[in-house]
Write a protein that binds this DNA or RNA. Structure first.
Lengths: 149, 149
DNA sequence: CTGACTGCAAAATCTTTGCAAAGAC
DNA sequence: GTCTTTGCAAAGATTTTGCAGTCAG
C-alpha cells in the first residue's frame, strides 16, 4: 500500500502538470479518503470534515469540485446508487467490485479473476473498447439476515 | 416472448391483487415500454408519450409513480447512471447485463453464464443473500471508435 | 501579480409530496 | 359511493454555477 506522503506527492505532481493549485481543502479531502477506507457520499465527507476540523470551513461546492477532480484524475473511484447519488473511495487498491447490503447499506469488496476475464471476452465480442466496468451484487449481508424476522 | 395482451392481463391481475386500479395512464406507460425495447429515463418516457398522444396529458409525477410501481412489482427493471438518474426497461426478457457507450450513450445487452455462476459463488462466500445484481461494462462502442480522431 | 480556487447563495436537476378534482370499480 | 389515482404546483434532495474575494505559485 502506498504511503500517504507518496500519494500526496503524486497528487501535487498531478496538479502541477495541469496548472492547478494545491490547496488545503484539496489536501484535507484527499487525506480524509486516505485515512478512511470506506465509501462516502459528498455530503458525508462534508459532515465528517466539519466534525474533524471544526474551525475550518469547506463549502459543499468545493467537496463536489474536488471529488470530480480526483475522479477524473483517477485518484478516486465512485460507485453509484440510482438516484441516491454516488459514493467515493480512494482508488489505490487493486481493482475490486462490490457487494451492497440493502438492509444496512454496508459495502463489501471482492475481486474475481474469472469474472474479470469474462468481461474482457464479452467486450471483445462486441468490439467494445472497455474503459471501465462496474459490478454490484445486491442483497442482504449475513449480519442482517440474522436480525430478519 | 410474451404477447402484449398477456402482459396486460398479468398487470391487471397484479393490480387487482393489491387493491390498485387499472388506469389509462398506467396502461400507456406499460404499452410504451412493451413497444420500445430500449432504456428510457422517466423524462424521456414523458416526452415520448406526449408526442405519441398529444391530446392526453400524463403528469411527470404519474410517470415516476408508475415506474416505481412497475419496478416494485418486478414488471420493469432499471439501471442507474451516477447522479444522472435511472433508465427503465421492461423486465420480460431473460436476465442480462449491459454495455454502455460513454460516447453515444447506447446500451447493449449481454448474458454470460459463467459470470452468473461466479456471482453466486461469491455471494455464498460472503454468506450474502443475493437478491439482485447489476453489472455494467463501460466503454466506447465499435461505431464510436470509428469516429474517434 | 496573475490566474486558479473558495465559500456563498442562487440556480439547475431530478424526484417526491400535498391536495383537490377525477376516475375506477 | 368509496377509495385510489391523477395533474398540478410546491417542496425536497442533490449537484452545479456565477461571482467577488482569497490564496497559491
Amino acid at each position: 500500500m502506498i504511503s500517504y506522503n507518496k500519494l500526496l506527492e503524486n497528487f501535487k505532481y498531478l496538479l502541477k502538470e495541469n496548472g492547478l493549485k494545491f490547496t488545503s481543502q484539496r489536501e484535507l479531502i484527499l487525506k480524509f479518503l486516505y485515512e478512511h477506507d470506506e465509501h462516502f457520499t459528498p455530503e458525508e465527507i462534508n459532515d465528517r470534515l466539519k466534525h474533524i476540523y471544526p474551525n475550518i470551513t469547506i463549502g459543499i461546492a468545493t467537496i463536489y469540485r474536488t471529488l470530480t477532480l480526483l475522479e477524473d484524475a483517477g485518484v478516486i473511484t465512485s460507485i453509484s446508487f440510482g438516484a441516491q447519488g454516488k459514493r467515493y473511495e480512494l482508488g489505490l487498491k487493486k481493482h475490486h467490485d462490490h457487494l451492497v447490503c440493502i438492509k444496512c447499506g454496508k459495502i463489501f469488496e471482492f475481486f474475481d479473476e474469472i469474472i474479470e476475464e469474462r468481461q474482457k471476452v464479452i467486450a471483445q465480442k462486441f468490439q467494445f473498447k472497455m474503459t471501465d466496468h462496474s459490478m454490484k451484487l445486491i442483497g442482504i449481508c449475513s449480519e442482517c439476515q440474522k436480525s430478519e424476522s
